[in-house]
Design a protein around this nucleic acid. Structure first.
Lengths: 338, 338
DNA sequence: TGCAACCGTGAGCAAATGCTCACCGACGCA
DNA sequence: TGCGTCGGTGAGCATTTGCTCACGGTTGCA
């Protein structure tokens, strides 16, 4: 990499680099000037960069964490990562994350897009900041039923409505609970035309906006009544670290079957895999293991996250390398195929 | 140029620049990522550079004066300029300049080249450092006759011989004095086959290696007996500031007819103009006005010079802008055409 | 001294880049 | 309200760049 240079080599590289980067000559002009072949000039310029003779520095605004973002992208193969700089106030931090997610959607969405939306506290904040410059003909569809046990603004239907209002688009609600008592009832509901259609729309989305849940006793799935504390404890014992839309994974990204799996009305991991861009929005602290598991599951395409979680995830990943066997098959609580 | 940026613009530019320059994505990938058109990405990257969001710094070795070189190139339209950092010892400085000139020749010359060579103290030092890696089939031809009054190593014939020895090439001497008593004698000499042939070869050179003379009483032309102190004083009174091969110019680069003009055996300015690359080597202090005049005359293609002169020339040029009317025609002491 | 492996080289091609141009929509002015 | 102007936009093309590959020269080893 950063091999040593003799004095005259150093001089030549510096001269070439000066001519190319500062004086903006073409490689061919420089080749003629220095009586070298063009490919050789190219190789020398490469070397100049590798050896640090040319330093390209991006003077980023102080609030950006481009380095962290690059690492996340690289390590987990994300198509994008957005890290919000840390703030003292957790509420302000969640707002900041939601705002960046909103900005991302504004530039990502265009007329005709269909967006599947999950529940979640951070996701629930996104609509407040979602104000595209011009009207967008976008359809927001619930990717999960509603839960009476959680505050209205974190319910998918409500989030869809608010997002649609923000851009002049359409909201498609899923008129069903997130969770029912038995498999039979779930199947009856899925047989309903309105419900089946909504879930179908969601499954065909090109973008999904999801939160990542944890496995502590106060996680959203417990608070919303989908799971009992016993059930979440059992999931923890199975190695589960987090979920998206009720689909639990362990720290290595492998699916973990949950007791309520086939009583949920939500998109499955397999549905999500078919979605072009799955945007995960997370800001609560104590989520790094959940995030790491989901990232390893390979479902997430874009991660919008606070600085603390980002650092913690990268730190975890470097200390706990993923095991060989990854995600793959696993149970499919929502059996409809697209 | 360095327009102001809004916060979010700044962020976008920094993100793009990071992706492009640090992560080495293509503009097209970035365009897709950010949902922009490729040309727009390009324009934004341009802006990022203009606004200093990306800083490309060439970490040049401390002994290089790339900035001065660029300025010389730009202002005087040189194809190259090489500036040697200042040294306390004038002798060491001259050697350094000669060494850089030798390096330049080593990379510029290739088999089949013909090099016309003038007299001069700095030029005379070049052969000592001229050691191409491999044998070069190059012909060195005197561009001027010899003068018994000056030390052998600064006579063109001797320089040619030494250069040829350095690379295994050929030396073509001009067996004539630089200067004769009358026009008639000059014409008689020019009628000699040997002399005419040599000068013809010199006129057809692709490279010329010349010194730049001054107009003080101790200049080479006076020391070599070509001019008397009265004559040089008269030239000064006519505005002459310096010469190449006895062709004098004023500070604006216009030719100044000299009393000995048609008694010299040397290439004229018009001959030099037809040479592809005229390399001037100068190191003596007190030469800036001479250099400035010759640069403005537009004869020089490559200037190898010490730092002091380089700075002084640039300084002079910025304080004494050239006048409208430039060089051009003027008298032609050596009437043979190529 | 001969042979083989290797580094460095330049030709040629495919991709990326910079640039020109015609167009569109916003804004200002009548 | 209509018209003209102007900044910004993306299509298309010419140029520049990066890369692959086959070759030659040199070096190390037998």
């Amino acid at each position: 990499m950063r091999e040593e240079l003799r004095e005259d080599e150093y001089e030549l590289l510096a001269r070439l680099a000066q001519r190319y980067y500062v004086d903006e000559r073409t490689q061919e002009e420089i080749a003629r000037e220095f009586a070298l072949s063009r490919p050789k000039v190219q190789r020398l310029l490469d070397r100049a960069r590798r050896c640090g003779v040319v330093a390209i520095h991006v003077q980023a605004p102080p609030w950006l964490r481009l380095e962290l973002e690059s690492q996340l992208r690289e390590i987990f193969g994300l198509s994008d990562a957005i890290v919000c700089s840390a703030r003292a106030d957790p509420l302000a931090e969640r707002e900041a994350v939601a705002q960046r997610a909103a900005r991302y959607l504004e530039r990502r969405l265009h007329d005709g897009c269909v967006v599947a939306v999950s529940h979640g506290r951070a996701v629930g904040e996104v609509p407040r900041f979602f104000r595209p410059a011009s009207r967008l003909d976008v359809t927001f569809v619930s990717a999960m039923g509603g839960s009476p046990g959680v505050a209205a603004p974190t319910n998918p239907n409500e989030i869809c409505r608010a997002l649609a209002a923000g851009c002049g688009g359409e909201a498609v609600s899923l008129y069903a609970p997130a969770y029912v008592e038995s498999v039979e009832i779930r199947d009856q509901l899925l047989a309903q035309e309105a419900i089946a259609q909504s879930l179908d729309r969601a499954a065909q989305a090109t973008v999904a906006l999801v939160g990542i849940g944890g496995t502590d006793d106060g996680c959203t799935m417990v608070r919303s009544g989908c799971l009992t504390t016993d059930e979440i404890a059992w999931l923890r014992s199975q190695g589960a670290v987090g979920d998206v839309l009720g689909n639990y994974v362990d720290i290595d990204g492998r699916s973990v079957a949950s007791p309520h799996q086939d009583r949920l009305l939500a998109l499955t991991v397999d549905h999500l895999r078919r979605v072009e861009t799955v945007v995960a929005v997370v800001s609560e602290p104590e989520k790094p293991r959940a995030i790491l598991g989901m990232l390893r599951a390979g479902v997430i395409g874009v991660l919008v996250v606070d600085e603390g979680n980002a650092r913690a995830v990268l730190d975890l990943a470097s200390h706990e390398p993923a095991m060989a066997g990854r995600a793959g098959g696993g149970p499919r609580p929502f059996p409809r195929e697209v």
